[in-house]
Simulated scan of single mutants.
Amino acid sequence: MDSITIDVRTGGTSVVHDLSRDCAEFCRGRGDGLLHVFVPHATAGVAIIETGAGSDDDLLTALDDLLPRDSRWVHQHGTPGHGRDHVVPAFLAPSMTVPVLDGRMTLGTWQSVCLVDTNVDNPDRQVRLSFLAG
């Protein structure tokens, strides 16, 4: 299995960060297999979603509606409402697997592999990309 870690700076706001270019570059020339994407953080997840047409903003809005950033959370350190960031990975898993054929991810036309980070207290993230040859 081949594996690399990439660094992503997400900034001080909630973000859907497109990882597709990094993933495609990592898969290029590797043949058939599986790409595994893993975020080793307790407050971030990964998603396959359309980006650039509003769906990424809609996802963040849906998370805000479903998991409000307020004082209801038992987990209380950090920015007010930060406890909800620790619940996000239960809804957006911290890992995913994408089939790869002939060195290319088999994503649909409008699908992108994205890091979803709602934690404004930690702008520096790592993402592990692993390839398991088939």
Rank of each mutant, 00 (worst) to 15 (best):
M1C: 14
I4L: 15
I6T: 08
D7A: 12
G11R: 05
S14V: 00
V15R: 01
V15T: 12
V15K: 01
V16W: 00
D18P: 01
L19A: 04
S20I: 05
S20C: 10
S20M: 03
C23V: 13
A24I: 12
F26R: 02
G29E: 07
G29V: 05
G31K: 10
G31A: 08
G33V: 11
F38K: 07
H41E: 10
A44K: 00
V46A: 01
A47I: 02
I49D: 06
I49F: 09
G52Q: 10
A53L: 15
A53H: 13
S55G: 05
D56T: 02
D56L: 00
D57N: 12
L60A: 08
D64Y: 06
D65R: 14
L66M: 15
L67G: 00
R69F: 14
R72W: 11
R72N: 12
R72L: 11
H77P: 09
G78F: 13
G78K: 04
T79N: 01
G81R: 02
G81V: 03
G81L: 07
H82I: 04
H82E: 03
G83P: 00
R84S: 12
H86P: 11
V87Q: 05
V87N: 04
V88R: 00
A93T: 12
A93R: 13
A93C: 06
S95E: 09
T97E: 11
P99H: 14
P99N: 15
V100S: 04
D102N: 14
G103V: 08
M105A: 13
L107A: 05
T109I: 09
T109F: 11
Q111S: 06
S112K: 05
S112N: 13
S112V: 02
L115G: 03
V116R: 00
V116L: 09
V116Q: 00
D117M: 07
V120E: 04
V120Q: 05
D121M: 13
D121S: 14
D121K: 09
P123S: 07
D124Y: 09
D124L: 13
D124V: 10
R125V: 05
R128M: 12
R128D: 07
S130Q: 13
L132W: 09
L132R: 12
G134R: 12
